[in-house]
Design a protein around this nucleic acid. Structure first.
Lengths: 224, 224
DNA sequence: GTACAGCATAATGTATACGTAAAAAAATGT
DNA sequence: ACATTTTTTTACGTATACATTATGCTGTAC
């Protein structure tokens, strides 16, 4: 059997790599970069880099500015509150849909698995892996809602705040409380109680958003 | 003074023009088009057309498919219900924010103007202009909510259903009922009652979405 | 020393060229 | 006649070349 993995296009590689550079902060917020510079950095010509930049622009991660190159988007506190307000509404609605859809225990197996994983990582005090499992849990829940566009919007907003979330991840207190929330949310979904699932999700996210914003303010970060 | 209007870039022209062709149906749903074909049609080279296509792809209006050209996105009934479900949530939330923000009568002048315009167009039986004023009203309301990303998402979803909406515009009954809704919604916003504004918006949109979907089903359109 | 004009420079926006891979067409054998 | 292999064509993905235009610098005038 020949190589199974298909040859990814340079443009898609550029999208992934630029995202990575943005999320890790290697390309810092509000910094400018020439297309040619990024191209040589990624080992390709300007064309795929430019195409990737245009995609990332519509995703809100950067701006392509005439003759100024690419500017990595930074978020003000207002942006952060706007994004979290939206995220809470969208995820809350999705949680309601997921619960109301009446999924079988089989459908919810992955969700349960993510919760278990989070518990394990909590014990192991591994925040990185805990955060990954947390995101998996939320993504699975949203998928169970069944509205792909909603899931897309949520993914987009999550990408926009990923840098900020990474910064504060190490400092956030009480991941244990988070795990309790997930347990209760899961039970609400199993029960098929959409309204309860929605409320629990909203409360859960609201608290997380609040503590994240507080942390950023304590750190004195005006733009992230 | 030299020409004040700045020379729009070919890529932005291509975006606008392709949007227009998609909205009017000149590029019909599920149809395929070569990049070179579109380029000569728009009187430019492949590059800006391709860049525009990539942008429109992330906006959900078409797909760029390897060696098949661009395919104009068609919506299934499921897509339509997903989109309207999302639109209702987002606009409802925005209406609540707009009302709760406690805007002055001055801030609401444009909103009032759009309502007046709709009433006038209702009397004149001009559905095209009525629809434009209707969209203006909704956009202004959302802007008053103050969350630009929310407004962007709504605009994106509106673009995705624009074709379908155009098709059914001529057939929709009772625009008068719509106008009543707007009046009541406006009063709720003036009063600063966020919860009421939200409910009114949600009901208003739900009914409109329901009748639109019903019309499409009656017409036997599986994909629009 | 300051202001302005003209020029040089640099980076984008767009066009074009080209290699590659997939699809279509043709040819060959059974 | 049908299946299979080979050839040819086609359209994209990417690289490169070029034109355009903003920006900054330099020089000159006041």
């Amino acid at each position: 059997m020949p190589d199974k993995e298909r040859q990814a296009s340079a443009t898609l590689l550029a999208v992934d790599e630029l995202k990575r550079l943005i999320f890790t902060g290697e390309l810092s917020a509000d910094s400018d970069h020439l297309e040619s510079e990024l191209a040589s950095r990624l080992g390709m010509s300007r064309t795929p880099v430019r195409e990737a930049a245009l995609k990332l622009e519509t995703l809100g991660l950067l701006q392509v500015r005439p003759r100024k190159g690419v500017r990595i988007a930074a978020l003000s506190m207002q942006d952060m509150t706007d994004i979290y307000d939206l995220l809470i509404q969208l995820e809350g609605h999705a949680a309601g849909l997921a619960a109301a859809a009446g999924h079988s225990r089989q459908d919810l197996a992955q969700l349960r698995g993510s919760i278990r994983e989070m518990e394990a990582m909590l014990w192991a005090d591994n925040r990185i892996e805990w955060a990954k499992a947390d995101e998996r849990f939320h993504n699975e829940l949203i998928s169970l809602g069944g509205n792909d566009r909603l899931a897309g919007f949520v993914a987009m907003l999550n990408d926009q705040v990923r840098r900020a979330r990474n910064i504060t991840l190490k400092l956030r207190p009480s991941l244990a409380k988070s795990n309790e929330d997930h347990q209760r949310l899961f039970r609400a979904v199993v029960k098929g109680d959409g309204e309860l699932a929605r409320e629990l999700l909203v409360e859960h996210r609201r608290r997380a958003a609040g503590s994240l914003l507080e942390l950023l303010q304590q750190m004195g970060l005006k733009r992230v």
